[in-house]
Simulated scan of single mutants.
Amino acid sequence: MNRRTFFLGSSIAIFVLPLPAIAGPTKATLYKNPQCTCCEGYAAYLRKNGFEVEVKPTNDLAEISQKAGVPEKYQGCHTMFVDGYVVDGHVPVEIVRKLLKERPAIAGITLPGMPAGSPGMNGQKTQAFSIYAVTKDGKPPTLYATV
């Protein structure tokens, strides 16, 4: 094979072969209480950071979270499902990306409650946020990240 044929073949392969690095936005489904507005703020925050978020109002939020493995006292004000994981509460996007990159053997992560200054919430951040890993087997949540 001469150099010209090799170069031409290589050039065509670059344009024809699919590139796995070119991917669309990460899709997520966020369940929220119909009256909650901070959840819409969190969805907007995720969209600004490259996520495609479908928001679904529901009156069964606690049940959805519980079935996903999030114990009641660790639940946030909304529950999101993204790429096989549950993300409960106002978890910062860098921690969601860490979860999706590392792909640990857990059900997901949660930032309990509605901490002031967290993404989608008003107010100033006054302390570090503790994000917990949850499983579906009933084991107590463990610390996943602090930001």
Score class of each variant (00 low, 15 high):
34 P>T: 06
35 Q>D: 15
37 T>V: 15
38 C>F: 14
40 E>I: 11
41 G>V: 06
41 G>S: 13
42 Y>R: 06
42 Y>A: 07
42 Y>V: 00
43 A>Q: 08
43 A>E: 02
44 A>K: 15
46 L>N: 03
47 R>C: 05
47 R>A: 15
49 N>L: 15
51 F>K: 09
53 V>T: 03
53 V>F: 03
54 E>A: 10
54 E>G: 01
55 V>A: 02
56 K>Q: 07
56 K>H: 04
56 K>I: 06
57 P>F: 00
58 T>W: 02
59 N>D: 12
60 D>Y: 10
62 A>W: 03
62 A>G: 07
64 I>Y: 01
65 S>N: 08
65 S>F: 00
66 Q>K: 15
67 K>C: 04
67 K>Y: 07
68 A>P: 00
69 G>K: 07
70 V>P: 04
70 V>Y: 02
70 V>A: 00
70 V>H: 03
71 P>M: 06
72 E>L: 13
72 E>F: 11
73 K>M: 10
73 K>A: 09
73 K>L: 11
73 K>H: 12
78 H>L: 04
79 T>E: 01
79 T>K: 02
80 M>I: 03
80 M>T: 09
81 F>E: 01
81 F>I: 05
81 F>T: 06
81 F>V: 04
82 V>Q: 00
82 V>G: 02
83 D>Y: 03
86 V>P: 00
86 V>F: 02
88 D>W: 01
88 D>S: 11
89 G>K: 03
90 H>Y: 08
94 E>Q: 11
94 E>M: 08
95 I>P: 00
97 R>W: 04
98 K>M: 11
100 L>F: 08
102 E>K: 11
105 A>D: 15
108 G>C: 05
108 G>P: 01
110 T>H: 07
111 L>T: 09
111 L>Q: 12
112 P>Y: 13
113 G>E: 12
114 M>N: 13
114 M>L: 10
115 P>V: 14
115 P>I: 14
115 P>S: 14
117 G>K: 11
118 S>G: 14
119 P>S: 12
121 M>C: 13
